[in-house]
Design a protein around this nucleic acid. Structure first.
Lengths: 356, 356
DNA sequence: GTCAAGAGTTAATACGTATTATCATGGGCC
DNA sequence: GGCCCATGATAATACGTATTAACTCTTGAC
């Protein structure tokens, strides 16, 4: 199998055509398995040249023409493979990779420049590369609202991992059903006798934070209890208020905030979970725990719920692939919330004393 | 900042030109800050329209006009984001990602090529999809020799992470200098009085295994010592031979084999490192350690050397980018072995007794 | 011989952008 | 008035691919 030229240069259809003695249009027709009539000898001759030259399509030409290259973009607001710090993306991307293989797509990670305030951005120096891919999956702990609006506006096919809303229109997403899981955690606490349950949400507003609060408020209403919804900006003050309100259980959005609350409680001579139960509103995936230099000790076995990260990734790919095949378009069908399974841990127990 | 229309599609330079009353070429010139003479009023008018319409460059047109698509392929023989098992690729890919950003490339992960015997393959139905990228980085604990030969033959630009050889010609690679590091470990043992040092290599032959053995043999020759090079296929037998030969130190290729040897030694009443020193020929990167379900206990602080995984990834990108720019071509310059720093641990001590 | 239909192939064009040779105009100088 | 130069702008073209109307040739029917 000797190369026809010494220099590896991307060969074009025009050159294949010249070598095969046909037109460029014929090469394209042969490649695309068209039902246009082509003499078998002509087809065979063209295929021979394609094979001998190792012709590979230039995806930019195809994209300019609006054709698919079986490539899904993956856009993350932070580095995919972080150095030293926690790995947020691993499980999501595991699901994405797995399903992409099943669906026959390759993954284009957008890594090249364009950072603002340390974060990547979709629109960079007046250009948006996402269109190189057939469609895109977006992930990130943060969201650039303007960019999201713009993507929706442009009708570019994408699916966001994590529920997102845009004033520009419907956003396709695969999220975790934080509302239902939070409500279920409240029900668990209720069944254990807890009557004063507080919510400690993340200090920055986002859809996932709002969903958790929504589930909490729903459960309070169901039990005709006045809600106590706080944020974790100042946890000392939060703890004081929990004491004042004689709260017996707290639903805390993040593991970090929960750990800090636990420390505050123990400093104040309270036992967790005997005196104060703490539920975390979403597990910290093991691969999210920093493994460098040494795992933090001691490990707390939080009572929490599992965020189905891999499944979210895989589902996002399935939805996007269906969109690209024209089987569906952004709407209720492409907005999915996956259920979260409760995980019993060691930080929730029956409500203390006679309050039961 | 009001949009001029309810925007539904991307706007083109031709449309900007129409709105500004100039040619499309002028729009391009204004955008690219050319030193071509442009009347200030004309420039201002065009810039106004660009701003008002929110024009964004369509990268496809720009890339078509250029010589490069600014895309590097990444081909791994196994899944990049494994489920549950050890993460082999993370650190390499961290380096690749980082350097790609610096060099201005996006990364195309090939997930769609078919599988044979559970592993991915480059060639599927005779064609090489990797060619849609400008060039490729390849990684994998395993190597398909036929595919490697074929890639070399086709002059396809690629860099392998890990030293590789091909009968078809020079292979560009970035590897770790296992030979020098192994020799240095031997020297360390020698300076601690060890005179009988064995090598326990991995049971399957590969370039990295051969390099370690080469370094070991080199050090033996330097000290005029007869080599004792074994493989880890049957570690009980290996251990018996170490006993028979009165070996005081062993250089073991993998952490798993070293751990098994340690267990055998302790079962036989030998202390490590007092009675038998064990050096591991390459660190197990922390992210390679399974963190699911629970880290294995107790952790051994192996004496070993650090494999510069991130640096290898980054260097591979630099070499490939230089190749793509035409600054270099496959040759000695594109075959790099990075040094490994020795890491003192708790498994190597002075040689026991009067052998010193 | 003429016409129509079928088989097979290609010239022309579109997609969006960047580049450059060419063109038009005005002013100055002889 | 003619020539030359400077300024400013654009027509034309290229990049690679996909699509389709148009074209050529052959065959069969009348």
């Amino acid at each position: 199998m000797r190369r026809m030229t010494e220099q590896r240069k991307r060969i074009t259809q025009a050159e294949v055509a010249r070598l095969a003695g046909v037109s460029q249009a014929m090469v394209s027709l042969v490649l695309n398995g068209s039902d246009v009539r082509i003499a078998p000898e002509t087809r065979a001759r063209v295929e021979d040249v394609l094979r001998e030259t190792g012709y590979v399509v230039d995806i930019m030409g195809r994209r300019l023409r609006g054709k698919s290259n079986q490539i899904l973009g993956v856009f993350t607001y932070e580095a995919v493979f972080p150095s030293g710090s926690a790995d947020f993306y691993g499980p999501f991307l595991g699901g994405i990779e797995e399903e992409s293989e099943v669906q026959g797509f390759d993954l284009l990670l957008f890594t090249s420049p364009g950072r603002r305030q340390g974060r990547r951005q979709v629109y960079e120096q007046g250009s948006n590369r996402l269109g190189i891919a057939d469609g895109c999956i977006l992930l990130g702990r943060h969201t650039d609202r303007d960019e999201l609006d713009r993507l929706v506006d442009e009708r570019f096919p994408f699916v966001f991992i994590g529920r997102r809303e845009s004033s520009a229109g419907l956003v396709s997403y695969v999220g975790a059903d934080y509302a239902a899981a939070t409500a279920a955690m409240y029900e668990r606490l209720w069944s254990l006798g807890h009557r004063r349950v507080a919510l400690v949400g993340y200090r920055e507003e986002s859809e996932s934070t709002a969903d958790r609060r929504s589930g909490y408020l729903r459960a309070c209403r169901r039990h005709r209890k006045a809600p106590l919804a706080l944020t974790d900006a100042d946890l000392s003050q939060v703890f004081e208020q929990l004491r004042r309100e004689q709260v017996t259980a707290a639903l805390v959005e993040t593991t970090d905030a929960a750990a800090a609350l636990l420390a505050l409680a123990e400093s104040a001579g309270l036992r967790v979970p005997e005196d104060l139960s703490i539920g975390v509103l979403g597990d910290t995936d093991p691969s999210q725990t920093s493994t460098w230099p040494v795992p933090r000790l001691p490990a707390v076995e939080w009572t929490t719920f599992r965020i189905p990260r891999r499944e979210m990734g895989a589902r996002a790919v399935r939805i996007l692939a269906a969109m690209l095949r024209g089987e569906t378009e952004p709407g209720r069908d492409t907005q999915v919330l996956l259920p979260c399974v409760l995980l019993d841990g060691a930080t929730v127990a029956e409500a203390p004393g006679p309050r039961r």
